[in-house]
């Protein structure tokens, strides 16, 4: 733009701001889609069962959504790259076992207190690091790397498992779940805090912008000489970190270490990201949309329990809702030559 006359440049920039306004508006609308689904669901369930929107039930939904929101926050970073992290269930198992064996418990004499929490979160971080290294340096596809580390996480948990369920007796850990502010446990506030923190990280830092860029056009970015592997590594570490934190929070809530603590959380988390509008091909979405997706799933689950739908029907309905929402919200993106994998 250096050699342009002032008028041309002004015209172009006006056009650009026009376009960017339209772009912004459109993006907002897209973000509102999942929110709309959420509101519709809430209203439908309220109509079907009065007092669905009672404070008590909303709090129950918030409690149930807290951990899925944390998981989708981490997962979003990896998905924004166009990669995937399947290891969270294994990471949570390993982190839960680490926590319950290092903090005061009824199996061994350890009493690491807050360092036990740090160690358990550190386990998550280490898993993220290993995932990232295997993906970037050994150039192995993330899907298979994280599938492998999923098994390894479960394995670490089963090696650590003593002959009986370790019960956590640490005051620090238990107070995470037992401290209530305004009827909500600290876990909900931790989730909100992490969500805000990583939303800011994603949208207002260099790293965040680079993660979007990697997801959008990795090949181009590599050619610019930017340290792309570092950005990818960071995303995997964030994802592992979140899974580690989730493991700690879940064990705090249960009050014990459990190797099956993360069972059945992975696929809903991936679905939540997609529901919220984070594209699996990368480059588009964010932690807030993903979090909305997670809340939608929890509302659906809670509501279906409330109206007394059996567990089998619940599977069918939630599968169908996921498909319909994703199909409808993706309609405007349909193009003849669009690549969808």
């Amino acid at each position: 733009m250096k050699n342009m006359s002032p008028t041309t440049s002004a015209r172009i920039s006006a056009q650009q701001s026009d376009r960017s306004f339209a772009l912004h508006a459109r993006r907002w609308l897209q973000n509102l889609g999942p929110l709309g689904v959420l509101i519709v669901l809430l209203l439908v369930f309220e109509a079907a069962r009065h007092n669905f929107l009672s404070a008590g039930n909303l709090a129950a939904i918030a409690e149930a959504s807290a951990v899925p929101v944390i998981l989708t926050t981490g997962l979003s970073f990896v998905i924004l790259l166009g990669a995937i992290d399947l290891s969270m269930e294994g990471v949570m198992a390993a982190s839960s076992m680490t926590l319950s064996l290092l903090c005061a418990n009824d199996v061994n004499g350890n009493h690491w207190g807050i360092w036990g929490i740090a160690a358990a979160i550190g386990v998550g971080l280490a898993f993220g690091l290993v995932n990232g290294l295997l993906n970037t340096i050994l150039r192995m596809p993330s899907l298979i790397v994280t599938l492998g580390t999923w098994f390894i996480g479960l394995g670490i948990a089963s090696i650590l498992f003593p002959s009986q369920v370790p019960t956590v007796q640490d005051h620090w850990v238990l107070s995470i779940a037992s401290t209530h502010i305004a009827g909500l446990s600290l876990i909900v506030f931790v989730a909100i805090m992490l969500l805000v923190l990583f939303h800011l990280l994603l949208h207002y830092t260099h790293l965040g912008r680079m993660i979007f860029a990697v997801g959008g056009a990795e090949a181009t970015l590599v050619m610019t000489g930017l340290p792309v592997p570092l950005f990818k590594l960071a995303a995997f570490i964030i994802s592992g970190l979140m899974a580690g934190i989730a493991g700690v929070l879940l064990s705090a809530r249960l009050g014990d270490g459990n190797a099956n603590i993360g069972d059945g959380l992975l696929f809903p988390a991936v679905s939540a990201c997609v529901l919220g509008g984070t594209l699996l091909s990368g480059g588009r979405g964010g932690v807030l949309p993903s979090a909305i997706g997670a809340v939608v799933l929890e509302v659906l689950n809670n509501g279906l329990i409330q109206i007394g739908a059996g567990p089998y029907v619940r599977n069918i309905i939630s599968g169908a809702v996921i498909l319909i929402v994703v199909a409808v919200s993706g309609l405007h993106l349909r193009r003849k030559l669009r690549v969808v994998k």
């Binding site: 009672s54 008590g56 039930n57 709090a59 129950a60 409690e63 149930a64 879940l250 809530r253 249960l254 014990d256 459990n258 099956n260 603590i261 069972d263 059945g264 689950n301 809670n302 329990i305 409330q306 007394g308 567990p311």
Partner: peptide
């Protein structure tokens, strides 16, 4: 009042019970 499937799992039972407390008080 109600029967739900918890798949033998602690966490699932916890979520189900929380929902029940909210619903049935």
């Amino acid at each position: 009042l109600d029967t739900e499937v918890g798949d033998w799992q602690e966490t699932k039972a916890q979520n189900i019970t929380r929902t029940w407390i909210a619903r049935y008080g």
